[in-house]
């Protein structure tokens, strides 16, 4: 084996660095704009820096309502997605049965088809069934496409948990529930938590399906969309944008650290 590794050609380094900069600079810009004193336009460079918009945003009841609703929806959808995703992953990974591929496809479909199709399909179904729009219709939609991230994480982990562990536990006299509690759960625990965090981030951020399944309620992304289309107070939007970046950043980093020695990390296929 060669021990000396060639270093990358300069052109490649520049292209890769430029690509990464292209991915990250726009997000950093959000942080600068949260402090600008300019109210009416998106002027660059900012004429001055101020902290006052944080206070203004703090005192806005509509922002708080949207935030609370978003957290509530994301939390409940995550719980539903974790239960359904884990059940599905357990079934698919422990046995081979007829229609196994179909089940995987069924789980992935809500995220593979464009969100607008999921959204309008749910909306027309709610209309046909005379279900009034409420927080629960939002949750119904979110849980449907969050199943896949939990499922992806759980399937990857189930594949690595050896079946002989389960058999050993049974041989030692544990019943099925004890085996689940003391052998399976500790093994898949971190993968589930990671999947749950990604599901939370996904739901917290979702806007396309939500525009179709929400009635009068505003989740935070809906609030932002409203501000983007019809701006009322731009600096408040800037601050909210920054907070949203920070709030979604933490679960993603946590999920990464929980699964980083895994063979496959969820995320391919948001």
């Amino acid at each position: 084996m060669r021990s000396d590794r060639q270093s990358a050609p300069l052109g490649l380094k520049i292209a890769a660095a430029a690509g990464l900069a292209f991915l990250h600079l726009p997000l950093l810009l959000i942080f600068v704009y949260a402090f600008t004193t300019e109210e009416r336009s998106y002027q660059w460079p900012p004429p001055g820096l101020t902290l006052q918009w944080f206070a203004v945003t703090w005192n806005r009841p509509d922002v708080w309502q949207a935030l609370t609703l978003s957290i509530k929806v994301a939390a409940i959808s995550t719980v539903i997605a974790m239960i359904l995703g884990t059940l599905c992953a357990a079934a698919v990974s422990r046995t081979r049965f007829f229609g196994r591929e179909t089940i995987s496809l069924l789980v992935i479909l809500p995220i593979a088809l464009p969100g607008i199709i999921t959204g309008i399909a749910l909306r027309s179904a709610f209309n046909l069934a005379d279900i009034p729009f409420s927080t629960w219709t939002i949750i119904l939609g979110h849980a449907t496409f969050c199943v896949v991230v939990v499922y992806n994480n759980a399937v990857a982990r189930f594949r690595r948990v050896s079946g002989s562990l389960v058999e050993a536990s049974m041989d030692l006299g544990a019943d099925g529930f004890q085996t689940f509690r003391h052998v399976i759960l500790p093994n898949i625990g971190t993968a589930l938590v990671a999947g749950g965090m990604l599901a939370f981030a996904l739901s917290f951020d979702e806007v396309i399906v939500t525009t179709f399944t929400a009635g009068q309620q505003q989740t935070l992304p809906i609030w932002m969309l409203e501000e983007l289309v019809r701006p009322r107070q731009r600096p408040v939007t800037n601050v909210v944008a920054m907070v949203v970046v920070l709030v979604t950043l933490l679960p993603i980093l946590a999920a990464y650290y929980l699964t980083r020695d895994g063979d496959q990390i969820a995320g391919s296929g948001k």
Binding site: P221, L225, L228, L249, I252
Partner: peptide, 15 residues
């Protein structure tokens, strides 16, 4: 790559 992938879609558009 993961951070921009998972950070808020609307915030990216807004940026």
């Amino acid at each position: 790559v993961m951070l921009p992938l998972w950070s808020s879609y609307l915030v990216k558009v807004y940026a």
